[in-house]
Amino acid sequence: MTVDGTMHIGELAERTGLSLRSLRHWDELGLVHASGRTEGGFRLYSEADEQRVRLIMSMKPFGFTLEELAELADAIEAAPADPLSALPDERATWFRDEMQRRRDKLARQLEDADELLERIRPS
């Protein structure tokens, strides 16, 4: 962490477990923005930037596109108490329904993985 409370991309990558390449790609796409730059042009990230990275990482298992991830992250950040209120009703409903459907699918996949693990465990 630098004196002003920001961190370089390497520290953000280490803290979040995301690769430097992914962070740079997300920045180029506008999914996550560096809060600033050093005089030499290196990206500087804040605690808020780290929280956004973590938020997006928590959404990745749902399989949304990068554009959908950005839309959802923006909505959650805009109204933390009522995350989807920043979206039109139809879009908010779609996200709620789609997240539930995808979560159920992930749960079934986890159950299948648990069953397989049980089958291969020694008796």
Rank of each mutant, 00 (worst) to 15 (best):
A78F: 06
L23F: 06
M59N: 05
Q100T: 07
E98M: 11
M7D: 08
M57P: 04
A86W: 13
T16Y: 04
H33G: 02
P88N: 09
E98K: 11
G5F: 14
V32F: 01
M59V: 11
S19F: 01
V32A: 04
T93G: 02
A73I: 11
I120H: 04
R21S: 00
H8Y: 12
I56N: 09
P122W: 04
Q51C: 01
D82W: 11
R108M: 10
S85L: 11
E47H: 13
D114Y: 11
R91A: 09
E50K: 10
L106W: 12
M57H: 07
K105I: 06
A73R: 11
E118M: 01
T2I: 08
L116N: 06
Q51H: 14
L55K: 10
R24D: 05
L20T: 01
E77G: 13
Q51E: 08
R24N: 07
R54I: 08
P83E: 01
R108E: 12
L44P: 03
I56K: 02
R37A: 00
G41V: 07
V3F: 08
R103M: 12
A34Y: 05
E71V: 15
F95M: 12
Q100E: 05
L72A: 05
R103F: 09
L20R: 03
A78M: 07
S58F: 04
G40M: 05
E14L: 01
P83N: 00
E47K: 09
